[in-house]
Simulated assay, not measured.
Amino acid sequence: MIHSALEFLTQELNSFIKLKVGDPITNRVVLSSVTNEQGIAIPDQSLGLSLINIEEERTSKDQQNRFINAVGKVEKRNPDIQLNLYVLITANFQNRLPNNSSDDYVEGLKQLSYAVAFFQSKSVFTQENSPSLAGFDGDLKKIFVELYSYSFEQLYNFWSVVGAKYLPSVLYKVRTIRVQENAIQQSGDPIEKIYLESRHKP
């Protein structure tokens, strides 16, 4: 479920940037961790889409745990878990290629601006307005993407934790991803009638 949502967003963002730059072939966005043992894991001249945190959405938690299935039986299973994903989009353009203007700081900012423009123009994804969503995971019905601002202190702490120098980046909150394994805990017939027996003392 999580991987499907992020693979879908990576594909959608790639399609948008291909149109903006007029290059239908080259993928400019990769689903990747920010760093690895060798340093920055995002390929040079690329935007990296990275999951940096997962939280449970509690404000709209559905406590219903009994459902009637297609044959009229009552099934008991745990309520859905709703997840919010914090996704960082990072521009890795560090002038590694001499005399190549496509591999410089300004180009990285331009590509990052395309990402911001994309999610500004389309922040809600459904199977109706994005048919490919169903192809990634039929259970993904709707994804909301919103810009998430964090403080300079949080920014400094994050890059200190990952052990890398800061790269231009923007953080998004992707909500809500529903997780339901449909593991049936109990099954039985529904209660259709209630009989009351009253007894009177003589």
Score class of each variant (00 low, 15 high):
Pro168Leu: 03
Trp159Arg: 07
Asn14Leu: 08
Ile68Gly: 04
Tyr172Glu: 03
His3Lys: 09
Ala41Gln: 05
Val162Ile: 13
Asn182Trp: 06
Gln94Thr: 04
Asp103Ile: 06
Pro24Cys: 05
Phe152Ser: 15
Gly48Met: 09
Pro168Cys: 00
Gly39Gln: 02
Pro24Ala: 06
Ser46Trp: 00
Ile25His: 15
Val179Asp: 02
Asn129Cys: 01
Val161Gly: 14
Ile68His: 04
Ala70Asp: 13
Ile191Thr: 07
Phe152Glu: 13
Glu128Phe: 10
Tyr148Asp: 11
Leu155Ala: 10
Thr10Met: 04
Ala5Arg: 04
Ala183His: 15
Gly135Met: 03
Ser50Cys: 14
Gly72Trp: 07
Ala117Asp: 13
Ile52Val: 12
Ile40His: 00
Thr59Ala: 11
Asp23Asn: 11
Glu55His: 08
Asn92Cys: 03
Ile177Tyr: 00
Ser198Met: 15
Arg199Cys: 08
Ile25Thr: 13
Phe16Ala: 02
Asn129Thr: 01
Ser4Phe: 13
Gly108Lys: 00
Gly138Trp: 01
Leu88Ser: 02
Glu153Gly: 14
Ile89Arg: 01
Leu97Asn: 10
Pro202Asn: 07
Lys122Gln: 10
Asn65Pro: 00
Thr126Arg: 08
Glu153Tyr: 15
Gln154Tyr: 11
Ser4Tyr: 11
Leu112Glu: 07
Gln63Cys: 07
Glu75Phe: 10
Phe136Ile: 01
Phe93Met: 01
Leu112Val: 02
Ile89Leu: 11
Ile52Cys: 12
Asp137Val: 01
Val145Asp: 00
Ser151Thr: 07
Gln64Glu: 11
Ile17Ala: 03
Asp80Ile: 02
Ile52Gly: 10
Tyr166Arg: 06
Ser160Gln: 14
Glu128Trp: 10
Thr35Pro: 14
Val174His: 05
Asp44His: 10
Gly22Ala: 11
Val29Cys: 10
Thr90Gln: 05
Ser151Met: 10
Gln120Ser: 03
Lys20Trp: 07
Thr26Cys: 09
Gly72Ser: 07
Gln82Arg: 12
Lys165Val: 15
Ile42Glu: 00
His3Glu: 09
Gln82Val: 12
Arg175Leu: 10
